[in-house]
Nucleic acid binder design. Structure first.
Length: 423
RNA sequence: GGAGAGAUGGCCGAGCGGCUGAAGGCGACGGUUUGCUAAACCGUUGUACGGGGUAAACCCGUACCGAGGGUUCGAAUCCCUCUCUCUCCGCCA
């Protein structure tokens, strides 16, 4: 959420940022609501102060056995006026907040301008796609032929956009998750967390999925939401907290299932495991001071890239343009992995610096030792990586002419000695 | 699922209609004392919003004792609703 104080002091910068997102100027309307809200607030508080004073006088008079009925009558009149001013102030407050809650984060100054993904900027290409002397098969074709990937069985159980993995492929999924967690916890100092995957509304408001994007999520009959990413529980762990700046950055990682309704993706990636309602993902979340977040963003990107390097997968890093970034992000890098069957790079990770945007929603603040003032923390999140899509990438990049799959060196240890996955 | 208990500041814990933003203790911070450390003593020690101040400092006001409503001139204290936690029994991975 945006800080109304910031908008008050920098209306042009605010509107300029919105424009880069493809939105029109909103500061005039917001500031009008804000001015009215503050006016009503002052009015209500003034009356309240008067009433508090009168109540004390009444107490003093009564304790001496005097007659306070004159003051009491006056206070009664104030009461209505105060209630009215207070109610109006709350109305304006709610109006302001609900407006603020639906406005996306402003892009950082170094984010490329553009309306959609065609304006994204490639930062670097790493690794070389495998040179296969046969026509590469798609991961789902490979998996089904191996008898270890079953979309029909999944459809019977759950419908479209689900999969059943068996045997060595089920194990490969587990191996990838374990490998990523070990890397991030042992070498990059992330704290492993096992969070709930069902959360309340407030958590989703905190990270920005609500109020605007509820249709992308699954919801239980009891009113819980299924997380679309572990970013939600991990980031909200610091909601409402005032953190000691000495303890920052806080780095957390979690392997969870993620659930997405894919409401707006009808017809997209209908085949295979690329776009599922349920998938595993290792998520990275950092909570930093405002000064640390840019450096931490680069570091996080490095951590995610390292997974691909160790798996020997070719990839590229892309800086998203202002129009292609998610709601809460002020700057985002996507990592795209090479998929031979698609002859293309496909997103496998997205690392975002959200600045203070989520922190303001969650009321997560930090304070320097000895300082009195608090300020919002910065939050960052990134996939490290999407396990399902990594499995896809391994299958396609390590396939052999006979349809078997070599196990990448880094995973052998996790595969219990399996070197080649074959029927 | 049944029965009961509770939710107060960083923590522990008092308060049960006005003088309580909240006793007391612990912790933390600043200072005095001290050869050093420890101890002792003195002081400070919540958050948010609004207003003032060029800004920081600071000053004034308002709100907050789980959340929301109500009673009252006045509520941490009384009433209602909700949420959460704990204990015992049952059930269960």
């Amino acid at each position: 959420m945006h800080d109304i104080k910031f908008i008050r002091e920098n209306p042009e910068a605010f509107d300029a940022g919105l424009k880069r997102r493809g939105l029109e100027a909103l500061s005039p309307r917001l500031l009008a609501i804000d001015a009215e809200r503050r006016r009503l607030m002052s009015e209500s508080q003034e009356i309240q102060a008067r009433r508090n004073k009168a109540a004390k006088e009444i107490g003093a008079i009564k304790s001496k056995g005097g007659d306070a009925s004159a003051i009491m009558a006056q206070v009664a009149a104030d009461k209505d006026a105060e209630a009215q001013a207070d109610a109006s102030a709350k109305e304006k407050e709610a109006e302001l907040e609900s407006a603020l809650m639906t406005i996306p984060n402003l892009p950082a100054s170094d984010v490329p301008d553009g309306a959609d993904e065609s304006a994204n900027v490639e930062i670097r290409k790493v690794g070389t796609p495998p040179s296969l002397d046969f026509k590469p098969k798609a991961h789902d074709e490979l998996g089904v032929a191996l008898g270890l990937m079953d979309f029909d069985a999944a459809a019977k159980l759950s419908g479209a956009r689900f999969v059943v993995l068996k045997g060595a492929l089920a194990r490969l999924e587990r191996a990838l998750g374990a490998f990523m967690l070990n890397l991030h916890t042992r070498e990059f100092c992330y704290l492993e967390v096992s969070p709930p995957v069902l959360v309340k509304d407030t958590a989703l408001y905190g990270t920005g999925q609500l109020p605007k994007f509820g249709e992308d999520l699954f919801r239980t009959e009891q009113g819980h939401w299924m997380i679309p990413t572990a970013e939600v529980p991990l980031t909200n762990l610091v909601a409402g907290e005032i953190l000691d700046e000495d303890k920052l950055p806080i780095r957390m990682t979690a392997l969870t299932n993620c659930f997405r309704s894919e409401a707006g993706a009808a017809g997209k990636d209908t085949r295979g495991m690329i776009r599922q309602h349920q998938f595993q993902k290792v998520e990275l979340v950092s909570i930093t001071s405002p000064e640390q977040s840019e450096e931490e963003h680069q570091r996080m990107l490095t951590c995610a890239e390292e997974v691909l390097k160790r798996l020997g997968l070719a990839y590229r890093v892309v800086a998203l343009c202002s129009g292609d970034m998610g709601f809460s992000a002020r700057k985002t890098y996507d990592i795209e992995v090479w998929l031979p069957a698609q002859n293309a790079y496909r997103e496998i990770s997205s690392c975002s610096n959200c600045g203070d945007f989520q922190a303001l929603r969650m009321k997560a603040r930090c304070r320097k030792a000895g300082d009195k003032a608090t300020r919002p923390v910065h939050t960052l999140n990134g996939s490290g990586l999407a396990v399902g899509r990594t499995l896809v990438a391994v299958l396609e990049n390590y396939q052999q002419a006979d349809g078997s799959i070599r196990v990448p060196e880094a995973l052998k240890h996790y595969m219990g000695g399996i070197e080649v996955i074959q029927p």
